[in-house]
Amino acid sequence: MARPRHAAPPAPETPAQVLADLLAVQRQRFAALDPRLPEAPAPPPGDIVVVGTPPQRVAGVITHHSWPAGSGPLLWSAAQVSELHPVVGAAGHAPLHALLEAWRTRMLPAVLREPDSAATVTWPSRDVVATRVFLDHGLVPLAVLAVRPPGEVVAPPPDPDVEVRRASGDDLEICVRLAMEELAYSSQVGGSVVRADAEAVKRTVMRDRLGRGEPTWIALRRGRPVGMMECGRAEAVPGTWLAGLLPEGAWGYVNCASVTSSERGGGVGHRLVATALAELDAPRSDLPTRGTYLYYNPPNPLSSVFWPRAGYRPLWTLWEVRPAGGLRSV
């Protein structure tokens, strides 16, 4: 009599398979959280971490970024950044806590020792389950990516003393001065950093932007520059970094908005926004026009009020702790 054959045990799942399975559930989670979110993106290549067992299993990918001296991102970022890209399916508090604990143990020792470092994670703003976990581990909401659908901005009251016009290459020094004023203020209420070479970096970036004709507006009161709005256009299409953050389509964005301190609260910012959005919202390609986006700092007592009043609402929150060694266990 033949002996019964026993099926071979199934091969253990690879970390990549675990990520794929959890990502499918995470896409359902994102769709239920916020209809304006794009489909949850697959994480970038990096160090894969898997924690727990089903149904409490979660995963994530850890990436590391290092910004060289003199680069533009150093004006808003730490030099060494460890970033977590969670893939957590429908997990609740406990599995998320375990994932953040694992993140800290997998950080590069050099990052944990570096004072100019940060641990960051970007996550949908409406996921309050994750919010509680991030706060418990010492992360703070330093920035949000906010979006606004196309639509007319209510015009500010008339002010014959204020003129808004497009900036040109001749306005470089004016734009640099206003950008530096914004940087100095933002460094007190967000992640911006006034580094020793900040003005030189701003000048180079601004010269390039104006040279490319990217939309930038200046506000003048009786001929004196009192505000600036530096903007641009982008497309969220498959294969771009923006496609992981925004629905597919054509977008305008506000890169820097600055009103000199003596003019804040006087309607200059409102006038700049009304002028800029009238152009940025105009259809310009075969892609659907989605609106505009920008980043602002929730701890900023000015921008956290101004931008929601202009119709922007948070889509993604950028959680951060500096230095990275400040990421704590609970």
Rank of each mutant, 00 (worst) to 15 (best):
V51C: 06
R309V: 08
V121S: 12
E163D: 14
V111T: 15
G60I: 01
G239C: 07
A69D: 14
G72K: 10
T122K: 06
H137E: 08
A310M: 04
E83Q: 15
V147P: 01
A219M: 04
R271T: 06
L74S: 09
A184Y: 13
F306L: 05
V153D: 02
L96F: 06
L75N: 07
P15T: 06
A234M: 05
D197M: 06
L112N: 05
D281P: 00
D286E: 15
V268S: 00
A155F: 03
R264C: 00
I218R: 01
D197P: 12
H6A: 13
H270S: 14
E279A: 14
E182S: 15
R132W: 14
P141Y: 00
S66W: 10
V176K: 04
V50I: 06
S77N: 10
R328Y: 08
L99R: 05
P12H: 07
H93N: 11
A196W: 14
V128A: 14
A42L: 02
A16W: 09
G138R: 00
A94M: 13
R221P: 09
A219C: 02
N255I: 09
R264I: 04
F134C: 00
N300L: 02
E235N: 12
I48R: 09
I48D: 02
R212Q: 09
P225K: 00
R57S: 05
L210C: 04
W307S: 06
L280W: 05
P299N: 00
V205G: 09
C231R: 05
E13Q: 13
D116T: 04
L108K: 14
R126S: 11
E199W: 10
S82G: 13
L318E: 12
R126D: 13
R29K: 08
A155R: 14
P15A: 06
A31F: 04
S125R: 07
E114D: 14
V205R: 13
G232K: 03
Y312M: 01
A130E: 01
R309N: 10
A200M: 11
S168E: 15
P73G: 08
S262P: 09
P41Y: 12
W67L: 09
L75Y: 02
Q28L: 14
P124M: 03
A167L: 08
A11T: 10
P68Y: 07
L183S: 09
A118N: 03
D197I: 06
